[in-house]
Design a protein around this nucleic acid. Structure first.
Lengths: 353, 353
DNA sequence: GAATAAATATATAACAAATACTTATTTTAT
DNA sequence: ATAAAATAAGTATTTGTTATATATTTATTC
């Protein structure tokens, strides 16, 4: 007789279903705390920014470190510095948080535009002079959707769209090359850059000016990184004007500041025609027309190919933009070039109400 | 209402976090519960599969529904049926959970040296002639850790270690005094400086040369800030040789350039013996031995006392360095002096494989 | 085939355990 | 001396538990 010794070993429960139900050794709150510390540079300030006490932060981070059995910060210094593991977790945490936020908005959308948030990005010029009108129209149609406008550089705006922090953006320059395959770029209007002078400037008396006059002026540019600068270099270069030889006065970082400077007689500047509507009407700025030269740039909407597109974003692109691609609304904006118009027609279904 | 967020400061693009933390109305646990219910088809069985009681599940789902203000299940029937919103949240939840698990794996990998980065600093000589071999060995053992080598002056390298920009460094000179309490300095080998001459130089014929011969030579030094210069001044000064009286030819900033210059008959130079291994073998440089003089310097590893030491740094110090502290590997390097050897033994546990 | 009992699933209530937060204080590094 | 983080002790909140109620389906019975 043999005795069958059938010993049932005790297996931890989490080994039963290996695939999905393993415990996750951190919480969303902990990730948010980690991010806050990284952003603010110290436990104390992170605590303030999250409206909790400092020990709460310390304890949560200690728990997190214990759960992961990895130190996340270099203690000791006055300011907390992330270790390599900390940086890694932060990078993933940001992804996770973004995905969670996307989730929230997707669910809000399900309530059929009765709520939710639309975040629109823009560069300086479009953000200041064009988008307020667009957002106004959108808000009239969808009063329950709250709209945020975030004005940043073209580069930063593009990244924000790529990362899903912004639903869509309107920019006037080139999308960074590393993002060109990630983003959908829909050209929708042409913006013209105008040369503005003080009304009492000698050149303002003449009807049109010529290429050579440009070398005599004192320019007030936006900082050299700006899109307007790049467009100018490109277009003027094509007209055989050496932008390097143009005299540069002070560099300002706001279009309003530039307008004021020109108006005060401090020099000339190139700015979008959308930005000087009022000033031209009031006669406090003069727009000079240069013989044979017209400086255009294409304004484009960018959205993220792969990400979930909210109902609100969809509505913005399909219902609001078309109103602004004709010159009825923004008379200064040019009609689209033929090929761009075709692209727009193909890609944006016009659902007029 | 629109919020114009116009921030002009320049921020690295990876920090582009535009949305300041908004609360996330669900927890990872809730997502896991949702998934369990979807998988199992009922609250009860989900509770069983998660080893909690059934009311716990009910309550969590109720909370979740309240937080999102959306019903997630069609109640009533025997089996809980997901609503539209429930399905959407489930789909996102699975993505989020997957991303969280990926995060865990990435961090575990970092712990197991299956990832991460090790940044090693070095001065010119060690960086050029010694570290490539060390890094090669490290890379063989830990192929998934990417290693960076940063070659700078001793001073700059020391600061980089102090600031945590570099995990560890190998230097041949003195750590700046203000950092001597911050850094752990582990001597691990002695490097000898040799006087090199063109093979056809008259002094090269003689077996050994004497102190006085040094005054007749034309020296090609590294720039005056370099460690080698300081060591030379110190050691030769001790031997009653006035370095100020030595004739200086051109100053070069690369050891390879100096070797070439000497080889071409442009003068003599002091360089590390580790740098001329090949040239001596090939007979294109002559090493002169000076009677009664031996110029040594201690090569040391420096690490930051107080900072968290990454697994990779630990492995480098404990597994790679010992191989290079004996003359088996770098025959030119001298054995450590007795006291230094003792220090090394005390501080570096040799885990030979 | 309607009424009723049994079975199963979810909800609620009351209470217990665990977790997280707070204030006050100490330690540490600048 | 100062500012930041860690620690300690007490409190509040959250989350879980058991026990029980309610609802819905299924089975049984007349």
């Amino acid at each position: 007789m043999s005795i069958v010794n059938c010993q049932l070993s005790i297996v931890p429960y989490y080994l039963f279903n290996l695939d999905i139900m393993s415990d996750i050794p951190f919480s969303l709150d902990q990730l948010r705390i980690l991010k806050a510390i990284a952003d603010e540079g110290s436990f104390k300030r992170a605590a303030d920014s999250l409206f909790v006490s400092q020990p709460a932060i310390s304890l949560q981070i200690q728990n997190l470190e214990r759960q992961l059995s990895v130190p996340l910060f270099d203690r000791g210094g006055r300011k907390a510095q992330l270790t390599e593991a900390g940086k890694l977790l932060l990078a993933y945490g940001e992804k996770i948080i973004t995905l969670c936020q996307e989730t929230c908005r997707a669910i809000e959308d399900l309530q059929n535009l009765q709520g939710g948030t639309l975040i629109v990005g823009a560069s300086q010029t479009t953000g200041t002079y064009l988008l307020p009108k667009m957002i106004g129209l959108f808000h009239e149609k969808y009063p329950y959707v709250s709209v945020q406008l975030q004005v940043h550089s073209t580069r930063r705006t593009s990244w924000a769209v790529a990362n899903g922090q912004v639903d869509l953006a309107i920019i006037g320059g080139e999308v960074p090359s590393e993002l060109q395959n990630v983003l959908e770029i829909i050209p929708y209007a042409e913006d013209e850059l105008a040369l503005i002078l003080p009304p009492n400037h000698p050149l303002a008396e003449r009807g049109t000016i010529v290429k050579e006059d440009l070398y005599g002026l004192n320019y007030i540019p936006l900082d050299s990184q700006s899109t307007i600068r790049k467009v100018l270099d490109k277009v003027l270069g094509r007209c055989e004007i050496n932008t390097a030889e143009l005299k540069i006065g002070m560099e300002l970082n706001s279009i309003e500041a530039i307008k004021n400077a020109v108006q005060s007689g401090l020099g000339a500047a190139f700015v979008s025609v959308t930005a000087i509507e009022k000033e031209l009407k009031m006669g406090i700025l003069h727009r000079a027309h240069i013989e044979g030269i017209k400086i255009n740039r294409t304004l484009s909407v960018i959205v993220n190919y792969s990400r979930y597109r909210s109902k609100a974003a969809e509505a913005f692109i399909k219902e609001i933009l078309p109103h602004f691609s004709s010159e009825n609304y923004i008379p200064q904006l040019q009609r689209l070039s033929a090929e761009n118009k075709e692209y727009l027609d193909k890609n944006v279904e016009i659902k007029d109400s």
